[in-house]
Amino acid sequence: MDELELLKKDWQKDTAEYPQLSAKEIYPMILKKSSSLVKWIFYISIAELVFWILMNTLPFLSESYKENFDKMEMSDTLFYGLNIFSYAVICIFIYFLYTAYRSISVVDTAKGLMKNILRTRKIVNYYVIYNLVFLAISSIIAFYFTITHSPEFSQQLTELDSNGEAFGFWMGIIFVLLLTIAIFGLVIWGFYRLIYGILLKRLNQNYKELKKLET
């Protein structure tokens, strides 16, 4: 293509076309703080980790929650087992996240850099999904324990049972519970789509463009 050759000729004329910066001007530039995508993702990941750790621990600081929790009569072994499990998961995630961040390097190939950033994001996503699933399961269990251990509730249930309305009642409860979980999940999912949609749109597009070549 002749035109591109013409462009090349013009391009390579290394004349003083650009305003040249002196060493004196460059010095202050290297002290400035970066605002790169990786930095943004890093801060958001930390915020996510902190958010979910707080979600798991804060309720236990409230007295009423503790009382309710005690009422559930969960065995100590199960309670401590679950606690150890959830902290182990946090540690594992922090480790994976750390190694993933270490693998992000600006001197990598263009494709390698994008791949590692996306991989890091994926690890945080898995962590969020794990928390959502854990939350859903534990709220179902907590709900079950609460209603089966409440004397008023079992009394009401016996009454309903004698009227033959127990089945409909249970269905209603399950429906409300599932609906709450679905709405909660949807809100969080939407929130994520928004943050990462904005943040990673360009990266995803470029990565796709490079991947397209392989097929």
Partner: peptide, 17 residues
């Protein structure tokens, strides 16, 4: 080395200020 870092920054890392 500069080509790499510069392009990677322009394509991937840079967020418009």
């Amino acid at each position: 080395w500069m080509y790499r870092v510069s392009l990677n920054t322009a394509i991937t890392l840079y967020r418009k200020g």
